[in-house]
C-alpha cells in the first residue's frame, strides 16, 4: 500500500495527544528519525517474539509431573515502526508464525493486540537498502495506519485522529518528497537473485565473503526478521520451559545429539544467514527474508556488510 495523497493533516500536538491516549511504543529506527518521547523497542520482534518467553511451568509433586500452561501476557499496544519493520512483521513473522499450520498460539494473541502505525521515512540513511529488496520508504503495506512527519504537520492515512485535507501547496511539497526519494532510491536486486545465490552454494567466493565475520549473534538478534528460536528447560524438579532467541551464527545452533554438526565452520554459518534471507525464504514464499533496514550493518562489530556479500556472490553467479 503506497501513499495515496488522499490522507489528512494533523498538528504535532494533536498527533501526540492521540499517541498518549493509547499504550504506544516506538522502535529505535523511528526514534532516531522522529523526535518523540515514547518508550523504545529495539525491533518489533522484541514485542511479538520476546527474547525470553516462559511457555509453561512444571513441577514434580505427589509422584507425578504437573504442567501449568501459561497464557501469553499481552496487552493492546500501538507500535510506531518504520516501513521496513512493518514489512518484517507482515512478510516474515506473520508468514512463519501465523500462516504456517498450526499458528503459534502466543504469537496470535500478541499480534491481534498490536496496532501497526507505520512512520514513513523522508530520507535514506547510509545503512538503508529497503528499495533493493522490494520495499519503499513510504509504503505501509500490512500496517493499520500511516504517519509521515512533515515540516507543516503530520500527514496521516488509515486509523487515527481526524484532520484537514492537504492544501495544494502542501500536496506539491509531498509530491516533491516522493520524487526525491524515487531519485535517491537504490535499484532493486536482480529478479533472479534467489536462484543465482542458490546455484552459487559451492562457489569459492564464500571464503572471501565470510572471512571477516566474527560469528557473534549481534546481526541476527537485532534483525527484525530473524525468527529462529530455541526451547530450553530451566530448573529440574520445578521450573519452566523457556523459548528464547537463537542464532544461526552460533556453533551449537545445528549441533545434533549424535555430536555431528552440519554447520560446524564459520563459513557455513555465514552462508546460511545470507542464503536463508536471500534465497531459501524467497524461493518458498516469493519475498525476500530481508527488509533492508540495515540494522545488522550498523550493529556489526567489524562492519561485515550483508549488502556487499549478496552483491559479491550474485556477481560471481551471473
Amino acid at each position: 500500500m503506497r501513499l495515496s495523497y488522499e490522507g489528512r493533516l494533523v498538528s504535532y500536538e494533536e498527533f501526540l495527544r492521540w499517541l498518549q491516549a493509547s499504550k504506544a511504543f516506538a522502535t529505535e529506527i523511528v526514534l532516531s528519525r522522529f523526535n518523540i518521547a515514547l518508550p523504545s523497542l529495539p525491533t518489533p520482534k522484541s514485542l511479538l517474539l520476546p527474547q525470553r518467553e516462559e511457555l509453561y511451568h512444571f513441577l514434580w509433586g505427589k509422584r507425578e509431573w504437573k504442567v501449568i500452561p501459561l497464557p501469553p501476557a499481552s496487552e493492546k499496544v500501538l507500535l510506531l515502526l518504520a516501513p521496513c519493520e512493518a514489512k518484517a512483521v507482515v512478510h516474515v513473522l506473520d508468514e512463519v508464525f501465523l500462516k504456517n499450520a498450526p499458528p503459534d498460539s502466543s504469537y496470535v494473541v500478541r499480534r491481534e493486540n498490536l496496532t501497526l502505525l507505520v512512520v514513513g521515512c523522508t530520507f535514506f540513511e547510509a545503512t538503508c537498502f529497503c528499495t533493493r529488496v522490494g520495499g519503499h520508504p513510504l509504503s505501509w503495506e500490512g500496517g493499520n495506519c500511516f504517519a509521515l512527519p512533515l515540516p507543516f504537520g503530520v500527514y496521516l492515512e488509515g486509523e487515527g485522529p481526524e484532520g484537514r485535507a492537504l492544501e495544494p501547496l502542501e500536496k506539491e511539497e509531498l509530491e516533491k518528497l516522493v520524487e526525491r526519494l524515487a531519485k535517491e532510491a537504490l535499484k532493486p536486486l536482480p529478479e533472479k537473485t534467489p536462484e543465482y545465490l542458490y546455484s552459487a552454494f559451492e562457489r569459492e567466493v564464500w571464503e572471501e565473503v565470510a572471512w571477516g565475520c566474527l560469528n557473534c549473534g549481534a546481526c541476527t538478534f537485532l534483525c527484525p526478521t530473524c525468527f529462529c528460536f530455541d526451547l530450553a528447560l530451566e530448573g529440574k524438579l520445578r521450573g519452566a520451559m523457556v523459548r528464547t532467541w537463537d542464532s544461526c551464527m552460533f556453533p551449537k545452533f545445528t549441533l545434533h545429539a549424535s555430536s555431528h554438526n552440519p554447520r560446524a565452520n564459520p563459513l557455513q554459518r555465514v552462508r546460511q544467514r545470507v542464503l536463508h534471507k536471500f534465497s531459501y525464504f524467497p524461493l518458498r514464499k516469493g519475498k525476500f527474508g530481508c527488509v533492508g533496514c540495515g540494522r545488522c550493518v550498523l550493529a556489526c562489530p567489524v562492519n561485515w556488510d550483508i549488502r556487499e556479500a549478496v552483491e559479491r556472490v550474485v556477481s560471481c553467479a551471473l
Partner: peptide, 23 residues
Amino acid sequence: IRCYACRNACPMCYCKECFAESH
C-alpha cells in the same frame, strides 16, 4: 542480549567451547 559479540571480539577468548554455551 547475549549475542556474544564481546566474547567473539576478544583476542583472549579462544576456548573451543565457551562455558556460556556448554550444555
